[in-house]
Structures are given as C-alpha cells and as structure tokens.
Design a protein around this nucleic acid. Structure first.
Lengths: 159, 159
DNA sequence: GATGAAATAGCATTTGC
DNA sequence: GCAAATGCTATTTCATC
C-alpha cells in the first residue's frame, strides 16, 4: 500500500470503485467528512495516480461485441526491437482490449473483443502476420465474476 | 450492436469509456447536442444497461496489490451443483478480480490480485480446497495494453 | 497540512415548447 | 431535441485546529 493512504482514503477508493457516479456531497456524507475535505482528498488521489481514471463500463454484447476470447501468444523472436514492434501492433488493434506479458509456458495473454467469428479470424490473422506464434485461443463462454474492485479496505497485513 | 444506438450514442459511449469524469455540459459540447438531450441519452444508456456502471480505475500497485496472476483452472467434478458452489466461492474471494468460463484445454480463467507471494499462495490454496484442479498460474510481468475501451465507433459491418 | 463554513459560480435537472 | 428557469452542486475563499 502506498504511503499516505489512511482509512478514509481507502473508503473513498472503495466507494469510487463500486460507483463513481455520485456527487461529491454524497461521498462526503458516506465517509463522514465535509464536501471540501472530500474534494481535496479525491483530487489528490487523482493527481497522485492512485485513481487512474473514471470510466464507463459497457455491456459488450449490447454494443455489438458478443465474442470475447483469451489468447495466449508466443513471439517468433525475442529481440527487443521485435518485441517493441509487436507491442505497438497490439496497441494499434482496437479489438485488443488488454495485453500482458507473463511468465510461464507462453509469452503473453491478451483479451480480444469481436463482433463475430469472421471478425475474430481477421484479428487473429493480423496478429499472426505481425509475428505471433503458438497462438492459442480460449473462447469465453460465461462470466462468473465480472471485474470486481480491488479489495482496498482489507488492511495490508490482515490475512 | 443493439438496436437503437445511433452515431451520437456511440460517440457518447466512446467518450465515456475514455473519461467519464466530465460534466454533462462538456459532453454535450463534444457531441454537438444540448445538455438536456445529452442528459436524456446518457440516462437511457444507463437504464438500458448499455452503460453498466461508472467506476474508478485504480493503480493496483499504488493501493498495495503489486502482484497480478492469470490462473487457469479445471474443476474436480462437473456436476451443476459442484460448479455452482465453486462459482460462489470465486465470487466470495475478494482477491479474485475476474472469473470466466472458457472453452478450450481448461475450464476457467481467473485473474487474481495479491499483496505478496504468501498472500497469493493463501488464495490459491483456498481455491484448491474448494475443488479447483490443474491450477496453472501465469505471473503477470508487464502491462502492454491496459484495459482499452471497446471500439464502439467502428461501424458494425466495417472491416 | 488538513478540515470546516460560508459564498459564488456553474451545473444538473425540470418544465414547457 | 431545444430553451429558459430553478434548485442543487462543485468549487473557491477564508478561517480554524
């Protein structure tokens, strides 16, 4: 836990992770502080980067992306330049929702949102052309737990 | 794409995915509509479930969760009751950030955020005790593309 | 350095068009 | 979908602990 986060900060973060669509006055009431103090705290949390952004979370199917797949990828080569170029390609493909380098049997895990199977095929082909090897796709079937907030309220040393 | 989303709706959704921390008046200016019309549209998008929620996106490391792992799991049994119980267990573990059923070599992919290695070990053990088998963990090393918004602006039939 | 109270400017929200 | 009007909020200023 970064230094300088007290109990009230953590409660604010918890509330904002669950629902940031509330007025400052309402949040102030929830944590028992004046609107002014609450405003100052939230501003600092944003400026320090603890809060990276406030964003709308959409229903993928309702906006035309019913297909979601996890894809593991190994790269064809492992030179720094090749890797950098491939990472840039990932960032440039809008249907690539997340991309992470991992340690394990494979090099990366990425998540792709697609409109339909041909759309998905087109995206995978594009990645392949950019130097992805051993591409393994796992089709998402069912969401058991959708993007839970980080459990910031639990004390750092509690088990 | 769900029926009833026109170009302006999609632009609003795109803006809100990138940054929902703006006033209604500002968004109205961006899409060239009056504040009233913008307010009505956004309210409808929320009520219809297209916008699931507005939330704060935190920096995991700065709030004490420097460790992130992808975990693939196969279940010990595949009876409906066993599955349901296991899914409930996943939802009850706060460090489990997402959990998806997938089609492929394994049954599920989950993402875990942990404070340190012992913390991670404790969580994995807990999942194991609940009936997870063939647990494979992939340690997250580097974020190449952090949670990009859905590309709602691209027309549904464009390639 | 952080908080609270009062004041102002701006916004969300409603009503009527 | 727009414009005007109202009530509320964010935000600043200033004082306090």
């Amino acid at each position: 836990m970064a230094a300088g986060l007290d109990e009230i900060d953590r409660r604010l973060l918890d509330e904002l992770q669950h629902d940031a669509d509330r007025t400052n006055a309402e949040l102030a009431g929830l944590v028992g502080l004046s609107p002014t103090a609450t405003l100052h705290r939230i501003r600092k949390l944003k400026e320090s980067g603890v809060i990276r952004r406030i964003r709308a979370d959409l229903d993928p199917a309702l906006v035309g992306f019913p297909l979601k797949v996890y894809v593991t990828i190994s790269l064809a080569r492992h030179t720094p330049k090749f890797e950098r170029t491939f990472y840039e390609a990932l960032r440039a493909v809008p249907e690539v929702i997340t991309a992470d380098v991992i340690a394990g049997e494979t090099d990366m895990v990425i998540v792709i949102a697609a409109r339909d199977v041909p759309d998905l095929q087109r995206i995978l082909l594009k990645l392949s052309l950019h130097g992805a090897q051993r591409i393994t796709t796992f089709l998402h079937l069912e969401e058991i737990k959708p993007s839970a907030p980080l459990p910031v309220l639990r004390a750092p040393d509690e088990t």
